[in-house]
Design a protein around this nucleic acid. Structure first.
Length: 299
DNA sequence: CTTTTCTCCTGTATGC
DNA sequence: TGCATACAGGAGAAAA
């Protein structure tokens, strides 16, 4: 499941392969890939066709291609700029495809270029990912995702502000970590890793934690994602690959996520799994004592 | 307004 | 072997 580090790896790969290229056309297969675009697939294609990729940006788990009018050549010459906004969802992949290569399964979009070089394919098995076109708003952020908060690596990230909002929140800390409107980029895996590192159970109410502890949890989130990024992302399963289709060449050691039954690296207590927010949460019951209200507290 | 639950989707693994 | 079920879960809509 691509979270911030994995999306950043994809962004860098895209920078290497499609930055500066002129998009000749985009072939959208089916309606789902453009379901977040207000005008639908045909309008999206109209806006992306014949543009040039000026840059590739990311905030949290979203990435976007900044596009300028392909005919003007010079973006400063007045070509209106907009962005092709992409979310990979759970299984979205970008693949650079040379001519003659078999098309990947579950291909939902194909970008072709004026230079006649390799095309860019978006494939997505579970179809939670998608494309949308958006005007650029304040600070160069697409208007469509203006509600997404800065991620921990963004210069605009204000951790003290995040902590201030967390302490007034009547909700479990893990919900806060997963709230992309509060701090972006953290998904289920890195949330569990950050909580394990900070020795806090995810079902603890955020308002019952001190600002120092909340700050520590956020520090750990940034740290674990930074480590994953330094390794080139974390390969959770075969659904995550880079733009060349390579997978599993890096391996951040996960200490909590997916480690049910294995001894905690700190204290040896078997890692537990509980259901929380319609997903799995992994934690050490000794290092991360559950709150009394939690069902996990009973055993 | 705040917070929680539901829904979208398909390949893989597991149980009977 | 075949069929049913659980699971993976991001994000926005809908509900509470």
């Amino acid at each position: 499941m691509p979270e911030l580090p994995e999306v950043e790896v994809v962004r860098r790969g895209l920078e290497q392969h499609v930055l500066g290229r002129h998009i000749r056309d985009v072939d959208l297969r089916g309606h789902r890939v453009a379901r977040r675009h207000p005008g639908g697939a045909s309008d999206l294609a109209d806006r992306v066709r014949d543009t040039q990729i000026q840059s590739i940006q990311r905030r949290g788990k979203y990435l976007w291609f900044v596009l300028s009018d392909g005919r003007s050549g010079d973006p400063s010459a007045g070509g209106e700029m907009g962005a092709l906004v992409v979310h990979l969802g759970m299984s979205g992949q970008f693949r650079v495809c040379e001519h003659g290569m078999p098309e990947p399964r579950h291909t939902h979009a194909v970008l072709t270029f004026d230079d006649g070089g390799p095309s860019l394919v978006f494939a997505d098995q579970r179809t939670f990912g998608g494309f949308a076109f958006s005007e650029l708003g304040a600070h160069g952020i697409p208007a469509l995702i203006a509600h997404i908060a800065p991620d921990p690596f963004d210069p605009a990230y204000d951790q003290r502000g995040v902590v201030r909002r967390l302490v007034t929140r009547n909700s479990a800390i893990k919900r806060g970590l997963l709230d992309q409107g509060l701090v972006s980029g953290i998904g289920n895996i890195y949330a569990d890793e950050a909580l394990w590192r900070a020795r806090v159970h995810g079902e603890r109410m955020a308002s019952t934690l001190s600002k120092a502890v909340l700050g520590r949890i956020l520090d750990q989130a940034r740290e674990v994602m930074g480590e994953a990024l330094a390794q080139g992302g974390t390969s959770f399963d075969a659904l995550y690959v880079n733009v060349n289709g390579e997978s599993g060449y890096f391996d951040l050691r996960l200490r909590a996520y997916g480690q049910e039954g294995r001894p905690c690296e700190r204290c040896g207590t078997p890692i537990r799994r509980e259901h929380f927010m319609n997903r799995s949460s992994f934690f050490c019951p000794r290092c991360q004592p559950p709150p009394r209200s939690s069902k996990a507290a009973s055993t």
